[in-house]
Structures are given as structure tokens and as C-alpha cells.
């Protein structure tokens, strides 16, 4: 009897335990610490089930985009030598506003908002 009640209570208690990802839709993600990224560099982070690209343009200026190339869904990267975003698959390039500079991508990259809270960099979907 007690065991059966325990088997009912267990899921309930587990249910109330806050899950690791606390937001229903991933609208925001902590991308890392400010000091982890040098100016004029970028890194790929996981944003929901898609990659995102965070770029530190200068000491204070940050940019973030969906890292999914609009051509064939490869993951784009930041190139410090050209200060552009580049897709290795077919040489598509985007500028730091996400606009297509050259190559096959038909559409610009979706830009995300970046906020620095203390020493944490937070990326969020724009409303």
C-alpha cells in the first residue's frame, strides 16, 4: 500500500523538481563569460537545438547571429582576418550585420540580441 502510494508520489515530486532548462522555449542563453572571448573573435554556442555565433567585435561591442548558414545550413564562423562571418562549405560571407556580402547564401543571418550582465554574456531572441 505504502509502496504504491510512493510510486504515485515519486513522479509528482520529480515533476515539481525544476528541470535543468528552466525556460519553456529557449529564448535566452548564457553564452559565457566576458573575459573568455577576446575582441575581434567569435565562438559557436548552443542555442536551443541550433548553433549560434557570438562575436566580440570590440571591447564593448558584441554581436550574435544564428550560426546556421541560409544556403545549406552549414555552421558559419567568424574570421578575424576579414572581420566577416564566413561559411566554410561554399564560401558564403556575411557582414557583421548578418547581411550577405558574397557567395551563395540567399538570405541574411538572423541576428540575436546580446546583453552583458555582470561578467556574463547573454544572447536572446529578438522579440
Amino acid at each position: 500500500m505504502l509502496a504504491s502510494i510512493a510510486s504515485f508520489l515519486y513522479p509528482v515530486l520529480k515533476f515539481l523538481n525544476p528541470p535543468l532548462i528552466t525556460e519553456a522555449a529557449v529564448n535566452e542563453v548564457v553564452a559565457g563569460k566576458v573575459q573568455d572571448l577576446k575582441p575581434n573573435s567569435g565562438k559557436i554556442i548552443k542555442f536551443g537545438n541550433k548553433p549560434a555565433l557570438l562575436v566580440r567585435v570590440s571591447d564593448t561591442e558584441w554581436k550574435a547571429f544564428s550560426a546556421v548558414c541560409t544556403h545549406l545550413n552549414c555552421t558559419v564562423q567568424y574570421r578575424d582576418s576579414t572581420e566577416q562571418i564566413w561559411c566554410a562549405c561554399h564560401n558564403g560571407t556575411y557582414d557583421l550585420n548578418g547581411k550577405v556580402v558574397s557567395g551563395p547564401p540567399p538570405n541574411p543571418l538572423t541576428e540575436y540580441a546580446v546583453n552583458v550582465r555582470g561578467d556574463e554574456v547573454i544572447i536572446s531572441r529578438r522579440a
Binding site: P11, K14, F15, N17, P19, L20, I21, A24, A25
Partner: peptide, 14 residues
């Protein structure tokens, strides 16, 4: 609701 179904433990059950 999807969050309940996928992320919350036993959410699918409840």
C-alpha cells in the same frame, strides 16, 4: 506544454 512533455521529469506522465 511541449516543455512539460519534454523537459520536466514525468511531465509527459502528468
Amino acid at each position: 506544454v511541449r516543455f512539460i512533455m519534454t523537459r520536466v521529469e514525468f511531465g509527459w506522465l502528468i
